[in-house]
Design a protein around this nucleic acid. Structure first.
Lengths: 136, 136
DNA sequence: GCTTGACCTGGAGCGCACTCCAACTTGTAG
DNA sequence: CTACAAGTTGGAGTGCGCTCCAGGTCAAGC
């Protein structure tokens, strides 16, 4: 599998893959006679997992740290688990914050609908800590 | 309320507040005789709301767009509602993705624990699309 | 043999979102 | 009156995460 195929399969650009290799996020692949990178299937799982870490808000430094641990093999299992546990906790609290915000958004959307309908809005909404109406 | 007080109350730095003003995210406040910015309480709700939009992944461009609409007053209610609805949908799908990822993390952490305990791991995990073990 | 397209490298550039700095003015406490 | 903390400005710098570019090589199809 050449870099273009991998890019297509994992949804990253060729440039991004080379960038990831440069900073050490993905291991250096073998090369063919012509010097082209040749990947095997296993890289796909790794790239996908990296993508999940990224999608859940893990920055490049921590992903690098994790990638580095990974290259150390089984000896780093415990450290990796600890990283994942910390990250999981972070994701959990992100989830809570997001859920909360979803409610705020829903409330606000309902309020806007009412205002659009010309309904008189309870003036106390002015003092609702979760509301920013902005109708000046 | 001077800029330092506001900064403390809303948890942003003085520099960030001035930056937000510069790019148009927050309205230009009145000034006192000495040229210092003087904020009233209402700014707090707005800054908090902006912060929520940011915390839920709305970029600066969209926050700017929203801020701009806000300055137009009631005439922009519908557009603002539409923006919020779109954003809410995005947040909802983020939530789903995050929840899914949480499961992946939990699975992986459990797997790591087992591996740490020296348990033989079902070789089929190699082929589990959601798993990236990295134990080389 | 030649064209075409995918690959290679090193390095520059970019958008976001701040963050810091120098040099200056102003308000307040002792 | 003086010291100093906190404010002001314009502009430069930072870190992240890519993204693009020039100039070159290589492999495969016609």
């Amino acid at each position: 599998m050449l870099i273009g195929d991998l890019a297509q399969k994992c949804g990253l650009s060729v440039d991004t893959l080379r960038y990831y290799e440069k900073i050490g996020l993905i291991p250096k692949p073998l090369r063919d006679r012509g010097g082209r990178r040749v990947y095997d299937q296993t890289i796909l799982r790794w790239v996908d997992f990296l993508d999940r870490l990224k999608a859940t808000g893990m920055g490049i430094k921590d992903r690098l740290r994790y990638a580095d641990l990974r290259t150390r093999g089984a000896a780093s299992l415990t450290e990796r688990r600890q990283m994942l546990e910390e990250h999981r906790d972070k994701v959990r609290s992100d989830l809570e914050r997001l859920t909360e915000m979803l409610d705020v958004l829903d409330d606000k959307i309902i309020l806007y609908r009412k205002m659009e309908a010309g309904e008189a809005v309870d003036p106390s909404f002015e003092n609702c800590a979760r509301t920013e109406h902005g109708a000046q």
